[in-house]
Nucleic acid binder design. Structure first.
Lengths: 246, 246
DNA sequence: AAGTGGTCTAGACCACTCC
DNA sequence: GAGTGGTCTAGACCACTTG
């Protein structure tokens, strides 16, 4: 049972503009209507329009020039999916233009390691049992991400037998626990894949890949899950975008 | 000659709040004054205050809960420098709590490679001469980043002899060219360091590190510089933070 | 001079959480 | 019910670019 709320005006406008850029109504390199015109056309205030536009600017999809206008980035079509915007590997793969596939490698309960118990800030020694699931993500049939998630079993309020691997960790937690994530951190490091990994990802064990060490936090700033993901960035690029700044 | 403009209210307020969190005036896990109170105290509108707060929220430094309040993240003090926020490696190192050092390894003019000419979108075959500089960044005396930047020599309007390596690429371009960067992309890949790299970074050539392939764009969306950086993330972590989202 | 985006305000109303 | 953050508006004024 998921509560659906209507999308905010900001979000709707954001999608409309994206659509128009995709459709070429606002062609690459071209000047878009001024903020005043657009706000008038859409029947919203200029502030709201600017808020909607802000994420397009931060992605580099459009460029604003004070005193001149707003322009569609000529490189907009090249803008690959930006890693830090995605909570779901499935969606990341989709947005990168590939068709995603996910399989569950393993789903088990086991005691948490010392590091896991520490990272998850578990103080009660009776609650160190963990629910662990491993998934393999493919893009266009090629394996790209091997993902392991660890969640304290005490959080589960429902047996996770019906879990579909397409669901993001966020969705999993909403459905099977009483926790909700509001932010997460990913530490990125380079590693050589262990033998079982290079087999699963079908890669040369001598070629390094990225490892993402994730921690997921709820609204109290408490860690509720951790993730260890191996990411073959040679297939699915990991791109960061910086905007503005000095 | 650099034009200094007064900081915007938003930016000033942002810094004030950060300072108060650092100073423990708003202690970790504690509730901050409400938006109305803070706006009143600082003599600004609530909208402006919210804008100033937005970046703290996106970094995970504070957590907002509708109907409840705004809280300082208990993990705020752990929040390591977030990679994608920095344009200057020197500042990245500083903000990570280390003292930075930079040395110029090389500064030369040479013809651009085919890839460089392509990436920089140089169409005129007479303008393929490049200005290249390589720098080595140290944190607390330990080498962490080996950086190579390539800029079309045609952009230079001044001899770059007085260049101080502490200056970011952005500052370099502002001073020695007529170009200004408004955004950049970084593709992150894992690599094994070549022999000269492992020597420069004083690392085991069998241990993989991160490579960042950067492209810097001006306000017209034209590439004006590229960068190839090798980053020893085992010393200086590369952390991404995701906020909100579904 | 005209038009653009950048900043900031004052206030309305809503959704939500807590007591 | 009181107080919080979330959304949105209408409008002012400024900085800047272009003709």
């Amino acid at each position: 049972m998921v509560i659906e709320r209507p999308l905010s005006i900001v979000e709707q406008v954001n999608q409309i503009i994206r659509q128009r850029i995709r459709d070429g109504i606002y062609p690459p390199g071209g000047r878009m209507p001024s903020e005043g015109e657009l706000a008038l056309e859409l029947g919203i205030s200029r502030s709201t329009l600017r808020t909607a536009m802000a994420s397009l600017v931060s992605e580099g999809l459009v460029l604003r020039r004070q005193g001149d206008g707003t322009f569609v980035n000529r490189h907009g079509f090249e803008v690959r999916a930006q890693f830090q915007n995605f909570w779901s590997f499935t969606r990341l793969i989709e947005e990168s233009g590939f068709s995603p596939e996910v399989t569950i490698v393993q789903m088990i309960y086991r005691p948490g390691s010392e590091k896991e118990i520490h990272d998850l800030e578990i103080l009660n020694v009776d609650l160190t049992e963990m629910f662990v699931f491993q998934r393999l993500f493919k893009a266009q049939g090629r394996p790209v991400i091997f993902s392991t998630n660890v969640i304290p079993a005490a959080f589960l309020v429902k047996k996770p037998e019906t879990y579909r691997p397409q669901q993001s960790l966020n969705e999993f937690l909403r459905e099977y626990t009483d926790q909700e994530i509001v932010y997460s951190t990913s530490d990125v490091i380079a590693v050589l894949p262990a033998p079982e990994l290079s087999a699963a990802l079908q890669i040369d064990p001598a070629i390094p890949i990225l490892q993402l060490q994730d921690v997921f936090y709820n609204r109290d700033g408490r860690p509720v899950a951790i993730g260890e993901n191996y990411y073959n960035e040679k297939i699915l690029g990991m791109r960061l975008v910086r905007t503005r700044g000095t």
